[in-house]
Design a protein around this nucleic acid. Structure first.
Length: 579
RNA sequence: GGAGGCGUGGUGUAGUCGGCCUAACACGCAUGCCUGUCACGCAUGAGAUCACGGGUUCGAAUCCCGUCGCCUCCGCCA
């Protein structure tokens, strides 16, 4: 072929009268018998080719062309006749009259058309991902992803961060997600683990004095998948030395704001901040969606004062969610009761305030005056509905938080915009029912809150940490913390987690030893790049922003992975398959 | 591990409380016609073991049982 001179979208009015060569795929073909229009598609867009029978040879070639053939066209750029312009296209005011047509590749009729924006079965899309990715909307996601990455890299480079690669063949560590294992041929019976994050490596880089590190790192977690979870995904991994928590938050907030500005042209407002305690009490979630209406309220004392029901009198907590300007039907109210029960509540009390007065599902336990007082305590306006859930504090709040979100979704009350939020002071430990022991809420290297050090031994579940999350519109985007850099404190944490010293020496010894050779105070964070791009692209699933994703069962339908391997391969690594 | 939804020509759907189904519609595909379309139009045509296996029945896309696959959610994901 002749060398391409222009992308499709670059063929504009300025080129009228010139000869250009464009190349790409046949997007659509409109055959009028004596006149054939071809929409030629490349990465930038479409350009219209018009073939007329006067050029018999070219006309015959374009008559033969079908959808998704790959062609190169050398031709004359000319203005479209008046009234025939297409304002939808960058190249819509011109068309190309072909002088030379080269069919570079023929194409079988594709299983689905990139030109049609219909909902194709996702399995089929993944099997023919190379065709799926031709769809302009999907391509757009990857162009956005590229912009985001460019903005990320330029920010970190400009602020003195070093991009350092860390190993993918690492060691399996206790705590956290299930590891993907890689058998070792040189050490039969032993395994590498693919990293769940470069956590320990980046801390070692801080001990090494690299001061500021970042990496666009692939990480791996062998857990069940969701729309926003893939077994392998990409983190923007960051670590810094000699920085306070607030300096780290400011730096990362600046990074995200720059990314939004450079890739979407959006000026994001300064992030809101709240503690984990405030998030849980106000929204029943550690990742509140601030777009979904007002916070929950604590009605414990009001409920005790006004509702005589013994069950509620005995409940340690009662909380309320107000649904503004909402007059549900009886059926809808029953639906909310079911919803609350489905979320684990033992029951739900509703109060509806209309022009005719107050109605409640708890009428048996309070008189009109008490009802008035209770509605006032909840600042209930006319046309508002109040939902009350009572019981253990955090579980009740979680139910109310789910109701708040579900209400906003159902009634389309979720506001537009980018509501960023820092959630800070996460608890250091959680109780694992399954293992019947304390586990780290974030990871075992997280620095406790300085005021709570003494509680580690006495009341560990009340210990706050210096850990923080970035939440965007109700999605957890990033998670980080200041790290422990004193071996003695680290030992205390391991002890609280019930890890015996021998075990910690074997599994984390290298990190403890490193800290004995001069460790700087340090901290960091890791962002889910795929989630960030998904939200920015307005996509419903991570699969829309990952070129070759896996299905919910972890299968890649394109390569057919995972797959069995030969016995000789297994022999080499000393593995026998259990029947 | 649990719950729910879905599976019908190449694609998207209708049909799913048993018989009017010899499976419908749109897109796509093929052939023919068409010189200004841009989701071109018109005509004709080809194309389906109704996911798979078993069962009930005179009769099953439709009912029952099982299996598989996809999607969503819970558990899980430091």
């Amino acid at each position: 072929m002749e060398g391409r001179t222009h992308y499709a979208a670059a063929v504009t009015e300025e080129l009228i009268g010139q000869t250009v060569t464009v190349a790409g795929w046949v997007h659509r073909r409109r055959d009028h018998g004596g006149l054939i229009f071809i929409d030629l598609r490349d990465r930038t867009g479409l350009v219209q080719i018009v073939a007329e029978p006067v050029h018999a040879e070219n006309f015959a070639e374009l008559d033969r062309v079908r959808a998704e053939f790959v062609v190169a066209i050398t031709g004359m750029v000319r203005a479209r006749p008046t009234g025939m312009e297409n304002p939808e296209l960058a190249s819509g005011r011109i068309e190309i009259e072909p002088l030379r047509v080269t069919i570079l590749s023929e194409a079988k009729t594709p299983p689905f058309m990139p030109a049609e924006a219909e909902n194709v079965d996702e399995m089929l899309r993944l099997k023919y991902r190379y065709i799926d990715l031709r769809r302009p909307s999907l391509l757009g996601n990857f162009m956005l992803r590229d912009k985001v990455l460019m903005a990320v890299r330029s920010f970190f480079h400009a602020h003195g961060f070093l991009d350092v690669e860390t190993p993918s063949l690492a060691r399996s560590t206790p705590e956290g997600a299930r590891d993907f294992l890689v058998p070792s041929r040189l050490a039969p019976g032993e395994f590498y683990a693919l990293p769940q994050s470069p956590q320990i490596f980046k801390q070692l880089l801080m001990v090494a004095g690299f001061d500021r590190y970042y990496q666009i790192a692939k990480v791996f977690r062998d857990e069940d998948l969701r729309a926003d979870r893939q077994p392998e995904f990409t983190q923007i991994d960051v670590e810094m030395s000699f920085m306070s928590q607030s300096e780290i938050l400011d730096m990362m907030e600046a990074m995200l704001r720059q990314v939004f500005y450079e890739s979407l042209g959006v000026e994001v407002a300064p992030f809101e901040r709240m503690t984990w305690q405030q998030a849980m009490e106000g929204y029943g979630s550690d990742k509140p969606d601030l777009r979904a209406g007002e916070p929950l309220m604590d009605l414990t004392s009001a409920v005790r004062a006004h509702i005589a029901w013994p069950v509620l009198q005995a409940a340690p907590f009662a909380g309320g969610a107000v649904m503004r300007h909402y007059q549900p039907t009886r059926k809808q109210l029953d639906g909310w009761v079911e919803f609350a029960k489905g979320q684990g509540a033992s029951g739900l009390i509703w109060i509806v305030k209309s022009g005719e007065g107050l109605r409640t599902s708890a009428g048996k336990w309070l008189d009109e005056q008490a009802l008035q007082h209770l509605a006032a305590a909840a600042r209930l306006g006319t046309d508002d509905t109040l939902m009350i859930v009572a019981g253990e504090k955090f579980p009740s709040l979680a139910v109310l938080g789910q109701m708040r979100l579900e209400f906003a979704r159902q009634e389309k009350r979720i506001e537009d915009g980018w509501r960023f939020l820092w959630v800070t002071e996460f608890p250091l430990f959680e109780w694992s029912e399954e293992e019947q022991r304390l586990v780290s809420a974030h990871h075992p290297f997280t620095m406790p809150h300085p005021e709570d050090i003494d509680l580690i031994a006495t009341d560990p579940l009340r210990v706050r940490s210096q850990a923080y999350d970035v939440v965007l519109n109700g999605t957890e985007l990033a998670s980080g913390s200041l790290r422990i850099y004193q071996p003695e404190l680290q030992a205390k944490i391991f002890a609280a987690l019930g890890l015996d010293p021998e075990e910690t020496e074997e599994k984390f010894g290298f990190l403890i030893h490193a800290f004995q050779y001069g460790a700087p105070p340090h901290g960091g964070i890791a962002f889910g790049l795929d989630r960030l791009v998904m939200l920015m692209a307005g996509a419903r699933s991570l699969r829309e922003v990952i070129a070759f994703p896996k299905t919910a069962k972890g299968v890649d339908p394109l390569m057919n992975a995972p797959s069995p391997v030969s016995t000789s391969q297994l022999d080499e690594v000393g593995i026998q398959i259990k029947k």
